[in-house]
Amino acid sequence: MSEPVKLYALSTCSHCKNTKKLLDELGVKYDVVEVDLCQGDERDRLVSEVKKYNPNCSFPTLLVGDKVIVGYREQDIKEALGL
């Protein structure tokens, strides 16, 4: 069973869009949450969640199993996915 993949993104961020595009092209199944589209407690909860993995709270933050990739780093993403 392949590792769970979760993407924390911003709807206005081009690096996040590139990351989604790459994951789609690679045929990867993933959850994505666009933090800027959330409000109030939900947004605060997500921010602290992201900070657990990426203290800078920058985007995209991509989880592949227990691996964390910050930013649109194509090679690192492929490696984490074992591709």
Partner: peptide
């Protein structure tokens, strides 16, 4: 990206960086 700036202007009243929260 410029579209992102316009969206953030509408949301927050200022053109916050589209790649930062």
């Amino acid at each position: 990206l410029l579209e992102g700036l316009l969206i953030n202007k509408k949301r927050y009243g200022y053109m916050c960086c589209p790649c930062r929260l």
